[in-house]
Computed example of a mutant assay.
Amino acid sequence: MKIGFIGTGVMANAMMGGIISAGVCKPEDIIGADPTEFGRTKTKEQNGVEVTDNNLDILEKCDYVFLTVKPQYYAPVIEEIKDHVKENHVFISIGAGVTLDYLGKAFGDKNVKLVRVMPNTPAQVGEGMSAACPNEFVSEEETKTTLSILSAFGKAEIIPENLFDVVTGISGSGPAYVFLFIEALADAAVVGGMPRRQAYEFAAQTVYGAAKMVMETGKHPGELKDMVCSPAGTTIAAVRTLEANNFRSAVIEGANAATEKSAAMRG
């Protein structure tokens, strides 16, 4: 299997690195296309893959083709490649707000195999969360292969396209909320006298460990929270204060705002 990337930005390089590290493909089975020499050189140095300045090289050599350019460049890129699409090609789009309907029309309604994907930035450290939605022309086997590729840099699940705005609010934008929480938690440690560098380490590791407990124990987050809250203890005192300041409501409203903004931008 050959995998191509049209566009070699930060996310594309993170994906390539994950795919190689997971053993899904060897570096020589991945090709990245970029119009800039800087982009090609960086990708070659970072991941050791083949690079090119010609998008048509990707279609000639690859079965699975990631569209990893910015959304405003989709129209000219697809116009360039649409007459060279073959039956074996599966196009995986990560463009925010770029719908399957838009992609199908851009390709000229030629029954092109398309998978809309929304990854998130933790893909850069192999812990991404990707939503995927294939169109009707992608086979079950091709869908499984696509999920195996996406799982190389985190987790991936099939999600109906009408939930992609929700995915934006939860996982697409979600890392920013977590970073904000880590920063606030570290600020509290600094207030208490802890050095800044150490405060970030304690806060980040606490969030990482708590998330891992949710993923690995299968327990409800509320149950895990209750396990930490001893009667008349420090944790329940903190939880009471957070609830008094609408902690959960603020998170819900923030995520909903991102979801609504995503829908408005789409259209």
Rank of each mutant, 00 (worst) to 15 (best):
G48S: 05
T206Q: 04
L185N: 08
G17P: 05
Y73E: 09
K113D: 08
K225R: 15
M1P: 06
I58C: 07
V191P: 05
G97W: 04
V115N: 09
V85C: 07
A188S: 15
Y64Q: 02
M265P: 13
I78K: 01
A132S: 06
G18W: 06
S173E: 11
V117N: 02
G192F: 10
K261M: 14
D226A: 02
M213A: 08
N256C: 04
H84W: 00
R196E: 15
V191K: 13
E216D: 12
F153V: 14
K105M: 04
N111I: 11
E45G: 04
S139K: 07
I94A: 13
P71V: 11
V117A: 07
V228Y: 11
P27W: 09
F137S: 03
R266A: 15
S148D: 10
G48K: 07
E142V: 05
I94T: 14
V69F: 03
A188H: 09
S173G: 08
P122D: 07
R40I: 07
A22R: 13
Y102S: 12
R40E: 09
K105F: 01
K113I: 11
I170V: 15
L56C: 06
C229K: 01
M15V: 00
L163I: 00
P122H: 04
Q124T: 13
Q72I: 12
T43C: 15
S21G: 02
A264N: 01
G169I: 06
S173K: 01
D83N: 13
I182A: 14
F91D: 06
V239R: 00
V228T: 11
P195M: 07
E216S: 10
T99D: 06
E37V: 12
A263E: 10
I236W: 02
V24S: 04
G7M: 06
P231W: 01
N55R: 05
F202R: 01
S93H: 04
Q124V: 09
F179G: 08
A12Q: 01
G222P: 10
P134R: 01
D101F: 09
G104D: 15
G254R: 09
G4V: 10
T68P: 11
G218F: 11
E157M: 09
L185K: 09
T146G: 06
C229F: 08
Y64W: 06
F66K: 04
A131Q: 02
L114G: 03
R197G: 12
I149Y: 00
N111Y: 10
